[in-house]
Design a protein around this nucleic acid. Structure first.
Lengths: 345, 345
DNA sequence: ACGTTAAACTTTAACGTTGCACCACTTGGC
DNA sequence: GCCAAGTGGTGCAACGTTAAAGTTTAACGT
């Protein structure tokens, strides 16, 4: 048989020879083609099972021009995969992709990735059937190159206004309204905002929040904002800056939970009690938000589902079932203990 | 030529034809083989650049029998990629793999993965040149099947005693001693342990910690432990259980930071102040440990480096530079504010 | 002038699948 | 008795690369 010292792997040929059928037949069985009779199918499957035969993924991809792989691209941040926000989305991507028989490959949008146009190559080289971008920023104009490329890619929780670029994202307008209503309802009249500034969604969110406050009669003088870089450290520093600028603020609205967590640390260091002295509200509802002290009130974005939907979108474009994919998901308020009635200081 | 309406991609053939050289020459240039003259090399590279040519990864893998892909296998937990512990390790893996020209593929050790022996198939099908297992448990005896397989795989932060299975891990014995010395040095005589119970490392750690306490004169009656499942929720419940069993404990030692964070939340709910009423020490030093209130004292395990080293190991086995790889990394104490002098209650 | 060696390629045969075109046989309608 | 359609396959040429062995040319020592 095939094992005369040459430690070669079992291939489709071995199975075909043993079953006395052609290569094509084995291939058809492998791909569940109905044109093969039950009898033949069983004979082949038995042989496959017995040899623990595993088709070579590369040969298959090469011949079929489809890799059954999805690539997910995250920004070039330090230890980026340790970020819970990205992790939640990746989890959603992974699980949905797996259900559909897809593998997921990791990529980081670092300098090389961008300047060498590797994001295009990933698709050109057929290494992936589709690409999902998480956490891209509004300065990532390289993405525009892809707009009319027809390549299956989608942005997750981000978008470019007036562009035909595919995306799935949370409803940031609704988030802003929900947060504003909650804080205003508690009587807060002096609010600090910790915002991200590098995405269109974050900017739209901040503007919508401010608008909602004004509509409800808040004076613009009583709304300040600082850039919190979407990070704990940024939230920490931003909170300090807000307090130094206006010591009488009674609530901080953070554009994501990480900044909120950083802010709470800064408040604790200053000896301010949350929510007695000052309220804090976050956004995303990442899992750690349940285990802060006090528990963080936040706007829930279903990041996991966002990831799963992204997979859906990329694959339906790949399969030419649709040419455009733009979805917005509803959000909800999660009340925990970090917000309470305003109390002037 | 090749472009009569058929929208076929640029291949090595096109480059070769244009440059008037053979396929092999282009291939050799692509692989930086020194046997090609500078002049030819430049001509070929120029053409490659101009056409934005990207070699087909599958064809290359098929022909060379090497995928330049590493697979990382994480346990089948809910939203597992949102776990900071795994994320830190994955970050280390990703970055080191990238430096070495490797891609990383995600896998989860779910039921199908295990029962269908997919972990073997991943290597058999050559989808990956090596596999890194993170967070495997002592019950994952399927790993034994791989022991003598010669396949390049390594366990990260776990091991099986008396087995030739490759691993990289933190020095859990040193962790235990460091933690015990720290707590004992602060005068604690009544200690609760929040432990993991599903890995050999965690069990060895707990035993070593208890041993160190006893050597320093602590009575076994004053050392209790609860299983905290390595999670925040487990740490929360474990802490409550420990306090109900022995209300006078003055310190909690947690086998990872996540349990410590859960415990701190439980203590806060009970109205206990950390560290005034009770000290808490964790393990790992995951990034969020800096942003808890108060900051978490912990033992630092360099998870990122553990991941990078794992890549090193798997690849050196793949390249047959070594047949066995077992490394232990030193750890260190990081003092923040969650531990302080014992005060009896 | 001659053989030897090295440099710089080229030729050819894999690598392990899949898609397409084709074929042989059966069934059935008229 | 002949054609049409359906069933259950087969054979072969891709797919795009690399590895191994072979060829040509130039350089060099004796």
């Amino acid at each position: 048989m095939r094992k005369e010292g040459k430690s070669t792997r079992t291939t489709i040929k071995d199975i075909a020879r043993e079953c006395g059928v052609s290569l094509s037949t084995v291939s058809l069985v492998l791909n569940n083609n109905p044109r093969i009779s039950q009898a033949t199918r069983e004979k082949v499957l038995e042989s496959i099972e017995r040899h623990q035969y595993q088709p070579n993924a590369f040969a298959s991809s090469l011949a079929s021009r489809s890799s059954h792989v999805l690539s997910v691209v995250v920004p070039h941040l330090n230890h980026v995969f340790a970020d819970v926000y990205f992790g939640e989305i990746v989890s959603g991507i992974y699980e949905h992709a797996t259900e559909l028989g897809y593998k997921v490959l990791l990529d980081v949008a670092n300098h090389r990735f961008v300047s060498s146009r590797e994001f295009i190559r990933v698709m050109k080289s057929r290494r992936a059937d589709g690409v999902l971008f998480i956490g891209s920023s509004m300065y990532d104009d390289y993405l525009m190159e892809l707009e009319h490329s027809g390549y299956p890619f989608v942005l997750i929780n981000h978008y470019f206004p007036n562009r035909g670029i595919n995306y799935v994202m949370a409803d940031y307008n609704q988030s802003a309204s929900l947060a504003a209503d909650h804080l205003l309802g508690l009587g807060h009249k002096n609010i600090g905002i910790l915002a991200g500034t590098t995405t269109h969604t974050a900017i739209a969110f901040r503007e919508q929040f401010i608008r909602a406050c004004k509509i409800n009669g808040l004076s613009p003088d009583h709304i300040n904002w600082a850039d919190g870089w979407f990070t704990e450290q940024g939230g920490y520093e931003g909170a300090e800056w807000l307090l130094s600028k206006n010591p009488s603020i009674t609530a901080i609205m953070a554009g994501n939970d990480k900044m909120a967590i950083g802010a709470m640390r800064a408040l604790a260091k200053r000896g301010l009690k949350v929510p007695d002295d000052i309220s804090v509200i976050g956004m995303d509802d990442i899992p750690p938000a349940q285990f802060t002290n006090p528990g963080l009130t936040t706007i829930r974005h279903d990041l996991y589902r966002l990831g799963a939907l992204g997979v859906e979108g990329a694959l339906s474009i790949f399969k030419k079932q649709t040419s455009s994919f733009q979805e917005i998901l509803p959000v909800s308020l999660v009340e925990r203990e970090s917000t309470g009635p305003a109390r002037s200081r």
